[in-house]
Each structure stands twice: as C-alpha cells, then as structure tokens.
C-alpha cells in the first residue's frame, strides 16, 4: 500500500513535503453563532484571522459526511484525526479507524459498502487533498492544538465536538456543516501572520519557514 505523495512533494522545491505534512481534511467549522452547535460562551477561542477563500468542491472517492459524524453523532474531531495532537501532520485517519465502527455500524449503507470494499481488498482509499501549505512552510498541528485546546482549561473541562470544532474551524471551516471538506480559508502567509499577531504567535521567519 502507499502513503501519500511522498516522492512527489520532494521533487517540488517550492512546496513542502510530501503532502504528508499538511493534510488536514476534516475538522470542524467555527460558527459559534449557530444555535444548535454553540460552545459555552465562557470559553475563549483564538481570534480568527479575517479572509475567505472560494474553495472548489472536491469530489472524494467516498463522499465522507463530516456533518453526520460531528453534528449528528457528536463525534469529536480528534477522535478520528488523532494524529493532529501527536504530530505536526494531522494525517488522514487510517482505514482501520473507520472500520473500528463500520464493521458493525451502518454496514448496509452504500458509502460504507464502498469503504468495506477498499478494506477487504487491502487498498487505501485514494482521498483527495484539500488543505495544503507550500513546501517551505513548517506548520505543526500539535502545537496549535496544545495552545488552543489543551492549554485552555475551560475548554478541556467542557471537551466535546462543539467546543473543539471552533478551534479547528479557524483554519478549516466548520465541518459540522459540510459533508466532504472544502477549503474556505485563504491559508496564505499574510493570513497566517495576521492570526499570529492577534493571538501572540511567533513572528520569527524561521518559526514557520524551512
């Protein structure tokens, strides 16, 4: 089986690495205003940078419904995207993670049948990459999550998909309202820097450039 576009990335001096680095499909969308998904008002969230991106609809091999998992079933973003808190890379959840539930849940649904087929053939699902940063950028999920989730006592005491999602949403949009992910934030240097300025992130070039 294969893993991500390792090779390719490295042939592209201007972009980083191998897709491996910044694949952040998933996660949730911060729309704290939305009534049924509101987080407790006392939790402090990062001041989200301004700017929007008119992202494309990306067709995935399986139309993964983020909304059903998060908004309906209230599964925490970090349950599946577990690498995000352990690595700079959020990664794509391994198929075994999906099958942990879906070997028994909703096995009759067409998308699950698709998934099961991949699993049984021992083939990885060829997901399409949605979020990415260039090759020369060092971005680490684990530190951002530490600062905005795990060092936020109030949030940790109320840990749920609805408290975590607004943090993820700062960069990825609120995936509680999407099926497959769509890029709706610019993810440009200026956008990153404005967030660093508002939230006290480092201003040193080499903190992010590599």
């Amino acid at each position: 089986m294969r893993w991500i576009q390792l090779d390719r990335a490295k042939r592209e001096p201007a972009r980083q690495g191998c897709g491996a680095l910044l694949v952040a499909l998933a996660l949730v969308w911060a729309m704290p205003a939305s009534a049924d998904t509101a987080a407790p008002a006392s939790i402090k969230y990062p001041v989200a940078p301004e700017g929007a991106h008119a992202g494309k609809d990306v067709a995935q091999p399986i139309e993964f419904p983020h909304d059903i998992h998060t908004a309906v079933n209230k599964i925490n973003c970090l349950y599946c995207h577990t690498y995000a808190r352990r690595s700079k890379v959020a990664g794509i959840p391994p198929t075994s993670k999906c099958m942990g539930c879906h070997s028994v849940i909703a096995t009759d649904k067409p998308r699950i049948k698709q998934l099961t087929e991949y699993w049984e053939k021992k083939q990885p699902v060829p997901w399409k990459k949605v979020h990415d940063v260039p090759d020369f950028v060092h971005f680490t999920h684990e530190k951002h999550l530490k600062k905005f989730i795990f060092d936020n006592d109030e949030l940790v005491q109320n840990l749920s998909v609805d408290t975590v999602a607004p943090v993820c949403a700062a960069c990825h949009g609120d995936l509680r309202t999407m099926t497959v992910a769509k890029k709706i934030k610019p993810m440009t240097m200026g956008w990153c820097v404005s967030c660093h300025e508002k939230n006290g992130g480092p201003g040193d070039c080499w903190a992010c450039h590599k």
């Binding site: 893993w3 991500i4 576009q5 592209e12 201007a14 990306v58 075994s96 997901w127 990415d132 260039p134």
Partner: peptide, 19 residues
C-alpha cells in the same frame, strides 16, 4: 519543481490501512 500547486483536489493523500 517550479510548479506550485496548492489547489484543492489535485493531489492524492493515501492513508495508512492499519498502522
């Protein structure tokens, strides 16, 4: 090498099966 493509949906990311 000089082609920077950050465009969504252009690249595949292949996840581990059962790491």
């Amino acid at each position: 090498p000089t082609t920077v493509t950050l465009e969504e949906g252009k690249e595949e990311v292949v996840a581990y099966l059962s790491p």
